[in-house]
């Protein structure tokens, strides 16, 4: 195996026990996936196919029923600062200001005050929230809250960044801007990223590889390389290469989406 592989999943599955005597839910079929350092991988699949489950297992917030996940050769046994996560729901700490939210992980690490605030302020700048440092999360729009959550995760300098449909609740325009913002940060900083989404365009635009999943029980259906050059501009969405990829992935996902919609 090449040294460059950072995250390795081997035979990872998850079966949730039955709820109130019901059938157990098989959320994830045994899955193998290797992700390389500084790779940007999108995971694309219909609702309920186990995308969040997969991400939570990588984050260490959930245990796989079988299989193991290793990060740089270390088996993952619980959550840790080396895997930053941005959740599907808004999870800023409502009692902390935007600035203190972004500083949460650094404070936990014991980074010296001056250095800590330098890092925090630079990321607040990068996600375009200067002027809102002292607001409470409640005073921000959904898009601003997710931007803060991204800054909070990246400021902590994790080895790998896990994003669970971070822009799922945003309108189309905001969503497009946020994609460019995140991609810009990635192009500058180089990080390993797993980006979960059910939006095909978003999956292609962001990633260097798109992993598609089948309807529940989820497993990997295909892996598609995205050979579009960086830095990417939103106009790339109108290019013929992009359309071709979109068509290919749309066809792959369509069958699964129908499956998911009819069998719940």
């Amino acid at each position: 195996m090449p040294d460059n592989s950072e995250l390795v999943m081997k035979g990872v599955s998850r079966i949730f026990p039955g709820v109130r005597g019901g059938q157990p839910t098989e959320a994830l079929r045994p899955t193998d996936l290797t992700i390389e350092r500084n790779d940007f991988v999108s995971i694309l699949g219909p609702s309920g196919c186990g995308k969040s489950t997969l991400l939570r297992i990588v984050a260490g917030l959930d245990r796989p029923t079988t299989g193991t996940v290793t990060l740089e050769g270390q088996v993952i046994r619980g959550p840790g600062a080396d895997r930053g996560m941005v959740f599907q729901s808004y999870t800023l700490f409502p009692w902390l200001t935007i600035r203190d939210n972004v500083a949460f992980g650094l404070r936990e690490k014991g980074v010296p005050e001056r250095q800590k605030w330098e890092i925090v302020d630079s990321y607040i700048d990068k996600v375009g929230l200067r002027g809102f440092e002292n607001h409470w999360p409640k005073q921000l729009s959904g898009g601003m809250q997710q931007r803060t959550a991204i800054a909070r995760a990246i400021a902590n300098n994790p080895k790998i960044l896990l994003l669970d449909e971070p822009f799922g609740a945003l309108d189309n325009q905001t969503r497009g801007l946020m994609q460019e913002l995140l991609l810009g940060i990635w192009e500058r900083e180089q990080k390993t990223v797993i980006f979960v989404t059910h939006d095909i365009e978003e999956a292609i635009f962001m990633a260097s590889r798109v992993v598609t999943m089948t309807a529940r029980p989820g497993r990997i259906k295909s892996i598609t390389q995205v050979p579009l050059p960086h830095p990417r501009h939103y106009t790339v969405k109108a290019s013929p290469e992009f359309s071709e990829l979109r068509l290919k992935l749309t066809e792959e996902i369509r069958g699964e989406a129908i499956e998911a919609a009819t069998h719940g």
């Binding site: 959550p79 840790g80 600062a81 996560m85 959740f87 999870t91 949460f104 936990e108 902590n156």
Partner: peptide, 10 residues
């Protein structure tokens, strides 16, 4: 989810 977020922040 807040507890989990804090865990992933170390």
């Amino acid at each position: 989810d807040l507890v989990e977020a804090a865990y992933t922040l170390g």
